[in-house]
Nucleic acid binder design. Structure first.
Length: 105
DNA sequence: CTTGTGACTGTAC
DNA sequence: AGTACAGCCACAA
């Protein structure tokens, strides 16, 4: 297992319900000041594992408050639904108000 | 070992 | 505001 991802998974798992965190935020907390990309890769690996994982990957969004998925746009809607279920409101352009919902460690 | 790519971000034009 | 470029790290071929 990759220990690097272990920290990332731990941080993502710490995100409280109804809150969201950006890739950069998670990366910084995980002691990776500029590893935002790796955070995304770590989450992508979750799908790859297609096993059991208690990681709330849907609470991780881009720094612009929007859902970032490169492929499988179907999951994009799925992530939005999950967040709405937790009480996160989306704007017109599916933009989340980071001022209100961004998780503060 | 070298190369290419990717759920990102910030700065520059 | 939209587009381009560079930095960074992990992984697959």
């Amino acid at each position: 297992m990759s220990q690097s991802f272990d920290d990332i998974y731990t941080v993502v798992h710490l995100i409280p319900e109804g809150k969201v965190a950006t890739y950069g935020q998670v990366a910084r907390i995980a002691n990776r000041p500029n590893g935002a990309r790796q955070v995304g890769y770590a989450l992508a690996a979750l799908s790859r594992i297609r096993g059991e994982h208690d990681i709330p990957w849907h609470r991780v969004i881009s720094a612009q408050g929007k859902i970032s998925l490169r492929s499988t746009s179907d999951y994009e809607d799925y992530q939005q639904i999950l967040l709405e279920e937790e009480g996160v409101e989306f704007g017109l352009n599916q933009v989340i108000n980071l001022e209100q919902y961004l998780w503060e460690a």
